[in-house]
Each structure stands twice: as structure tokens, then as C-alpha cells.
Amino acid sequence: MFTVLLAIGILVVLSLIFGGILGYAKVRFHVEGDPIVDQIDALLPQTQCGQCGHPGCRPYAEAISNGEAINHCPPGGQATIQALADLLDVEAIPLDGDHGTETAQRVAVIREDECIGCTKCIQACPVDAILGAAKQMHTVIADECTGCDLCVEPCPVDCIDMVDVGITAKNWSWDKPQGVAAQSLNIIATDRSTEVSQ
């Protein structure tokens, strides 16, 4: 009988100790908020273009944290998908073509002599990158433009063009070398274009 009681007693003491440790750990390592959404949001390109089907990047970040696929962001392209895949520890999948295709970095440019000053593009711009007043000619602040092309559709006179940001001697960079044997079959992981890490 005593051994039984002793066993029970030891177990009770042990459970108290471990419970205490667990309780302390919960307080000590408590994580505020839902940082994964912030982390996802930080990886998204913040063009606020809505091509993912959400009104802005943050809503999409929230949707991803709730299990939506990570391949709905054409402005971010494959690089963003890869980064998200790394963050969430899932497989990187190709961009979903239903949401648009990855394009080069673009900026909106207003053909200023055609602009009638309707301010519709100003209202449409998610990042306030268009300057102008009613009945005055508008212009795009190229540095602020995210290239989301949300201003193109509302323009009643179609005077907004999306222009590729060209390569100049200042922003030019070397290509990545082709590496060993550029053409090969993807049998093993290291054969793939984005080589896996160590």
C-alpha cells in the first residue's frame, strides 16, 4: 500500500513540477499578437494592386496565414513565392496564372497633354503617387509609383500608360552565370533552377 501511495505521490509531485515549468514557459515565452501575418506582409511587394483578390497586401497576408495559396501575387512573382515558401516551410509552387502574370517593374506615366484633370486616377491610386488638382493636368511621382496599374482603368480619356522601368548604366547588373550544365533533367533536387540550400 505504501509503495502505491509513494508512486502516486511521486507522480503528483512530478506533475506539479512539470506543470509549473510549462506555466512559466507560457508566461516567459509568450508571443504577442500574430507575428506570422506581419512576416508574410513584409514579404509581399506592397503594390496594393489587388490582383490576388484581396483589397491590399495585408488582407492577402492574413488570408495566407489562414491557409490561402501563396501563388496569387503576380507583382511579387516567383521570388516572393519562394520567400513565402521558405517562411511557411511549404513547397514553392508556380504563380497562379488566373491572377495575372509576372511583369517587369513598371511605372504609370500620364500623357499630360491629353489629361483632362478629372482626378479619377488620383482617387484610384492606392499610394497617393499621383499629383494634380481638378481640371489641372496630373502627373505620376515615378519614385512612389508601385506599378499596380489601378489608375489605368478609371481614366476616362485613356491617357495613362504603364511603362517598363528601363535598364540604364546606373541600375544595370551582371547576369547570374549559367552554372554547370545548363540543360538537364530535373531528376534530383539540386538540378532545379532554384537550388536547395545545404
Binding site: A181, Q183, S184, L185, I187, I188
Partner: peptide
């Protein structure tokens, strides 16, 4: 050959 890599080269 299975990986379709240049055999001679390697």
C-alpha cells in the same frame, strides 16, 4: 545520361 547531362564533359 538519366540526368541528361553532358556525359563526356563530366
Amino acid at each position: 545520361a538519366m540526368r541528361r547531362r553532358p556525359i563526356r564533359f563530366f
